[in-house]
Computed example of a mutant assay.
Amino acid sequence: MSEFRITRDYPHPVERVWRVLTDPELVPRWTTTGRGGRPEGFAPVAGTTFRFLATPVAGWRGIVDCEVLEVDAPALLRYSWIGDEGATPSFVAYRLQPIAGGTRFTWEHTGFTGIGGLFMGLLLRSVRAKMLTVALPTVLDDPKLPA
């Protein structure tokens, strides 16, 4: 089984980071460094099924089916991730922890299986690293975003 974790520290309070990560209107602003991921039907409530809609590419329909599995706001959001119809789910977790001067955010994506899962994990890790290093800080730093 393959997995990855990316941890970044942001100079913003946990509540602000949580809002940017879980507000359906704000999510596309930081996920577009990949193929864009506009959530459809998302709410940070356990049991909620939703989809990320993105630009399809050869071999991928551009839809990720998800279900919120666990929420402990503003510290944890965990959901299932199915990128291909009929595929075995993998799992994403957002973990937020207050630190001096801001928030430590850890993105976990676990449960990849087989050789295809290994390659998918490597691809997603690269995309997520860019999202969390470039796009998410841009949204968090936006002065127009209410505190």
Rank of each mutant, 00 (worst) to 15 (best):
A58V: 06
T49S: 15
L140C: 01
A135Y: 08
A100K: 08
P13S: 07
G37L: 03
K130F: 10
L145Q: 07
G34T: 02
W60S: 10
A46V: 01
R8K: 11
L76G: 07
G101R: 09
Q97F: 02
W18F: 06
D84C: 01
L122S: 09
A135P: 02
G102F: 04
L122E: 13
T32D: 15
I6P: 06
T55R: 11
L145R: 05
R51N: 07
A87P: 01
R125H: 13
D65M: 05
R61N: 14
A147H: 02
T33D: 14
D84T: 04
T133D: 11
T32V: 02
G102R: 06
V57I: 09
D142M: 00
H12K: 11
M131P: 00
Y10W: 13
D141K: 01
L69Y: 15
T32Y: 15
L76I: 00
L122N: 08
T103A: 05
V127R: 12
Y94G: 01
L53K: 14
S80T: 15
E108R: 00
P89H: 12
V20C: 11
T32I: 00
G101H: 06
L118I: 00
C66S: 15
F105M: 02
R5C: 03
T88A: 09
T113F: 05
A100G: 08
A58C: 05
L145I: 00
L145G: 06
M120N: 14
T110W: 07
A87W: 15
T133C: 00
R35S: 13
L21M: 02
R5K: 13
A87H: 15
R19H: 13
R128G: 01
P98Y: 11
A46W: 06
F112L: 08
W81L: 00
L140T: 02
A58R: 14
R35E: 14
T22M: 06
V134D: 15
M131A: 12
I82Y: 11
Q97L: 08
P24N: 10
W18C: 03
I115S: 09
D72S: 05
I82T: 15
V45G: 03
P13K: 04
F42D: 14
A129W: 09
D72P: 01
T133S: 06
R125Q: 14
L77R: 13
G111C: 00
P146Q: 12
R125S: 05
A43Y: 10
T48Y: 13
T110E: 13
W30E: 10
V27R: 07
L76A: 09
L69A: 14
G47T: 04
F91M: 11
P28R: 04
L145F: 04
A54G: 12
T22S: 05
I6L: 10
T103I: 03
L123Y: 15
D141S: 03
V45Q: 08
P98D: 15
V64H: 13
E108F: 01
L76S: 09
T7Q: 07
V17M: 11
T113L: 06
D9Y: 11
G117S: 07
P11H: 14
V45P: 02
R5G: 05
I115C: 03
G62I: 07
L53I: 13
D141W: 02
F4Y: 12
P24R: 10
G34Q: 10
T48P: 08
F50Y: 09
